[in-house]
Design a protein around this nucleic acid. Structure first.
Length: 957
DNA sequence: GCCGTCACG
DNA sequence: GACGTACGTGACGGCG
């Protein structure tokens, strides 16, 4: 791009580049297709337009680096097609073709590209990019800056003049007043008048029929402006023109409304915040690698060289903003970093006072491990203002000699630990009132963890906001919600990796052994980033319509889950140990039998070796190789071999079942018993499943066996304390009920209202048989169809499930849809909504994003489509049980009962209850669960909960 | 660290 | 005409 002709300008004004991103995508797309044909990366995603865009952006960034006057830069995008213009005039842009299919997946990628280069990507619902550009241009002018609009769109030419110019990025040509005059025959100030008369067939702006740009220019030059022209139209000598103008004066005025760019769009980010920033090397390289832009990678490396990791570009001092211009806050990238270690109580008190003064504080705890129930507190970091954070070490120990750290000077420091830090008890006592104060908001990333940790120090942290959950509520499905990922995404900053302070593998140390200066850098950064994430994510809740979900479901759930984790569940360790021995003994027998049958010894646990035995050595048919070239030996394959009488296959299946039970359950579960509490404390992730479900780990209590008799025994190991029972309460068929409600299927709703056997009812309707005396196979098929529907049915999947031909399965599906046309309608509408918006919603407004929904690859698209059908159902069920969980502790306490909620398994809750209170608790729990959707949503089918009571989980379920 | 397998809703 | 599929998870052992 050539240097604009302002080098000699005595003003030396700062410059802002505003890139018309949406306009550029289309140009890049067609230019690349014409020049190089379709470009795709090796996974098939088309990337031509992304590459063109990235090249252009990189070029622009190079220029901004070389030209010291370029201080600000942003890329502006269109959002949906609905804008305030389509409100005024329905047909506006209505005749546009849908974008080419292989361009659709590139829209989000272009935004990724923008972020990868650490350039602000701006868009706003209801406004076109042009309006936002007009608004920023006017703000920039008011602030005394020069504006360069990077676009060749003639609709933007009305903005040219004064300190605003345009740059055509394809032709690399400046567009100033002269060029606009050349195009429209008038100056930029009259461009709107010309467009109002001439209209625009591409955008469907009507204008006045029969008048094009040439005639319009003639008329405007003669009459001065549009209003004068329309007032005095009667004076026009040419009959045709005169009549058209008189007749279509209103259309001209309407067109003026359409073509006039709005210069006062309300924007969250002011023009002064769009400062030029250095890209983060890791983020940019990751983006370039994923998209396989090899040449560009080379040029990027060459250009940035050694300075690459610098977070902020060095900019010349800004001129004072002109009067009336926005006086922006400090731009995010220019935040000054100030991290300190707190070693004196009076310093700690200053932080506490400031937190009270501001009313909110980001908190992060550092501990000895990831498992909150086993870890102990090492330090606490706080942040109240962006860039400023402190770290309060309380549990550091001198590094072990083997750690390899140089601890010269340890003698100068305090005795016991050998380290200078405040006593933990003093810090806890000082912080407790603040962390429990109801008017000070505590901000955390996955604050449940910190609540569990601090809970063990006697602090009940609250009220809280959680940046992980703020992200999860708004962007589930788009990306993960870990702090590092969010930091890179929102700020382009990669926080110090934990590995960097604690090492990895064998030589890894706990955080307690990390030297305090290094620990401060790491911990303070975490609190700082958390605070900044909160400043970004919290305000956009309203925009994403997620405030209700966050405030009424996710946020209140945090302390409930924290409490469940701290309660834990009692397991019968001696019983598990006996079970384990039993399983182990039988496995040994099976292995020797298997070796005999095979005629040689091999590792039964190796699918590779097993496949070779079965299909190469024994020459059995049915050997299919998977992606890695190894034979498949999964249950389906082995079951069918076993059915053909292959004894070895049956024995391997038995062995596998035992191996699974032993390694994953009996052995692992015993190892998970907490030494301090004697109970097992799972960890529930609140932001793992995109649909809104919880996930459980360490150990996973949501996949304890039940389907086979052997596995079921495991459930008997989950027991109640003496004098107590377990209650298990589960929603009956909640997903099918919600399907009936969401898709509004009257016959299904009636069946549920009447309490019928829903699978039998489906069988009777689909196969046209009576409910009584039905062939059990028919009910089984109907049940599989019902599940299939929830999963976004395919003939292939159903055929596999039922072991029938695909044609047969297709027939079932068709007769199902004939019987329930509303379900097909629901599916079609859900998919269409998702194709349009990129997400689907539950009945409580939870958004689940499906980035693959417009993928060019049919398989990936199909995958997303099925997930789109499933997510509202699975997610609504998750919302409902979460609502119940939030209410239950209070309801139990209000009723004067002592039950404790221990576990959740998607549609089931487990409680530990004193013997005397079981009946009353079961009734209360059932009632709260059944009414959990109310009063927000009156589900049009009854929600039914079944509760069971027993000495262990197996009996209770 | 990925893959195949398998446990659950 | 081919593609490659039921939805959502987590944990294990084998293997490179």
């Amino acid at each position: 791009m050539s240097e604009p002709d302002v080098t000699g300008d005595p003003d030396q004004k700062h410059r802002i580049y505003l890139v018309d991103g949406s306009g550029y995508i289309f140009r890049a797309y067609f230019a690349m297709i014409r020049g190089r044909g379709p470009i795709t990366r090796s996974d098939g995603t088309p990337t031509g337009a992304v590459l063109g865009f990235s090249n252009m952006l990189f070029k622009l960034i190079q220029d901004t680096q070389r030209d010291g006057r370029v201080s600000h830069l942003a890329v502006i995008f269109d959002t949906s097609r609905k804008t305030f213009r389509s409100e005024i005039f329905e047909e506006y842009k209505a005749n546009r073709d849908a974008p080419p299919e292989d361009l659709i997946p590139q829209f989000p990628l272009v935004r990724d590209a923008t972020r990868a280069f650490n350039v602000p990507a701006i868009e706003k619902q209801g406004f076109e990019a042009d309006d936002i550009i007009a608004t920023y241009a006017s703000q920039a002018t008011a602030a005394g800056m020069e504006t360069v609009i990077v676009s060749s769109d003639k609709d933007l030419m009305q903005l040219v003049g004064g300190d605003v110019t345009m740059l055509d990025p394809m032709k690399n040509k400046m567009i100033g007043v002269d060029e606009v005059h050349e195009k429209f025959g008038v100056g930029p100030d009259k461009v709107i008048d010309i467009q109002s008369l001439a209209g625009d067939s591409v955008d469907n702006v009507p204008g006045v029929p029969g008048i094009g740009v040439k005639t319009a220019a003639l008329l405007i030059n003669e009459f001065g402006d549009l209003d004068t022209l329309l007032d005095r139209a009667a004076e026009i000598p040419q009959k045709g023109r005169r009549e058209k103008l008189l007749e279509h004066a209103d259309m001209a005025r309407l067109s003026r409304q359409l073509v006039t760019l709005k210069q006062d769009v309300e924007l969250d980010i002011g023009v002064m915040d769009l400062t030029v920033q250095m890209p983060d090397a890791a983020d940019l390289m990751a983006f370039l690698n994923v998209n396989e832009f090899k040449q560009l990678t080379g040029r990027v490396k060459e250009f940035f060289g050694a300075d690459f990791r610098k977070d902020v570009a060095e900019l010349p001092d800004m001129p004072a903003p002109a009067a009336g211009a926005e006086t922006a806050e400090t731009p995010a990238a220019a935040v000054e970093i100030d991290y300190t270690t707190v070693l004196e109580m009076k310093d700690l008190q200053e932080w506490i006072d400031e937190a009270y003064r501001i009313g909110s504080v980001a908190v992060d705890t550092e501990t000895t491990g990831l498992n909150a129930m086993q870890a102990s507190l090492v330090g606490i970091s706080l942040s109240i203002h962006p860039g400023k954070a402190c770290y309060i070490p309380v549990g550091h120990v001198a590094p072990k000699a083997q750690g390899g750290f140089d601890f010269d000077g340890a003698e100068e420091q305090a005795e016991e630990t050998g380290l200078n830090q405040l006593p933990k008890a003093d810090v806890i006592a000082a912080l407790k009132p603040l962390l429990e104060d109801p008017v000070v908001l505590k901000i955390g990333q996955n604050i449940k963890y910190d609540q569990v940790i601090l809970g063990q120090e006697g602090i009940e942290v609250g009220p809280v906001d959680d940046t992980m959950l703020l992200s999860y509520c708004q962007e589930a499905g788009q990306h993960g919600h870990g702090m590092d990922e969010l930091s890179r995404l929102h700020f382009g900053i990669s926080p110090i990796p934990f590995k960097e302070v604690a090492g990895t593998g064998k030589s890894q140390i706990t955080f307690a052994e990390v030297p305090i200066d290094k620990a401060t850098e790491y911990a303070a950064e975490d609190a700082d980033i958390t605070l900044r994430l909160h400043q970004v994510l919290k305000p956009q809740l309203a925009k994403t319509k997620s405030a209700t979900l966050y405030e009424t479901i996710e946020r209140p759930l945090v302390p409930v889950i924290a409490r469940m984790e701290r309660e834990g569940v009692k397991v019968d360790a001696p019983f598990l140990s006996k079970l384990s021995e039993d399983f182990g003994a039988r496995m040994i027998e099976l292995v020797s039998e298997i070796h005999n049958l095979a005629g040689e010894e091999f590792n039964v646990g190796s699918p590779k070796q097993l496949g070779e035995i079965l299909f190469d050595k024994m020459g059995l048919s049915g050997g299919k190789k998977g992606k890695t070239g190894a034979y498949t030996t999964d249950v389906n394959v082995l079951e069918s071999l076993a059915a053909d009488g292959v004894e070895l296959a049956r024995k391997v299946l038995d062995w596998r079942q035992l191996a699974k039970l032993k390694s994953t359950y009996t052995d692992a579960l015993q190892a998970q018993v907490n030494a301090r509490t004697g109970r097992v404390h799972t960890s529930f992730s609140l932001a793992a499943a995109s649909t809104g479900r919880l996930a459980s780990s360490d150990p996973n209590v949501q996949n304890i066996p039940i389907r086979t008799e052997e596995g079921r025994k495991l459930r008997n190991a989950f027991i109640a304390e003496p004098g107590h029972k377990l209650i298990s309460a589960d929603y009956s068929q909640i997903e099918l009920r919600l399907l009936a409600h969401i898709a509004d299927i009257s016959s299904l709703k009636e069946a549920f209202a009447e309490g019928l056997d829903i699978h039998a009812k489906t069988a009777s309707q689909v196969f046209g048989v009576a409910m009584e005396g039905m062939d059990p196979m028919m009910r089984r098929s109907a049940k599989a169809i019902n599940f299939g529907i929830i999963y976004g049915i395919s003939a292939f999947g159903l055929a596999r499930q039922l072991d029938v031909s695909r044609t047969e399965a297709q027939g079932y599906i068709e007769s199902y849809f004939t019987q329930y046309p509303g379900i097909r309608k629901y599916m079609d509408e859900t998919k269409a909504f998702c194709h349009e918006t990129g997400y689907v919603e539950t009945i409580f407004g939870r958004r689940v994003h499906l980035p693959g929904i417009n993928d060019k690859n049919g398989a990936r698209r199909g995958f997303s489509e099925r997930a789109a059908i499933n997510a509202p159902i699975q997610g609504s069920a998750a919302d409902i049980i979460k609502r119940a969980m939030i209410r239950l502790p209070g309801a139990i306490a209000d009723a004067g009962l002592k039950a404790r909620m221990l576990l959740q398994v998607h549609d089931e809750l487990i409680f530990e209850v004193p013997d005397a209170e079981t009946a009353e608790t079961a009734a209360l729990v059932t009632s709260v669960m059944e009414k959990a959707a109310l009063p927000a949503i009156d589900v049009s089918v009854p929600l039914v909960v079944d509760a069971g009571i027993g000495d262990n989980w197996g009996e209770a379920h």
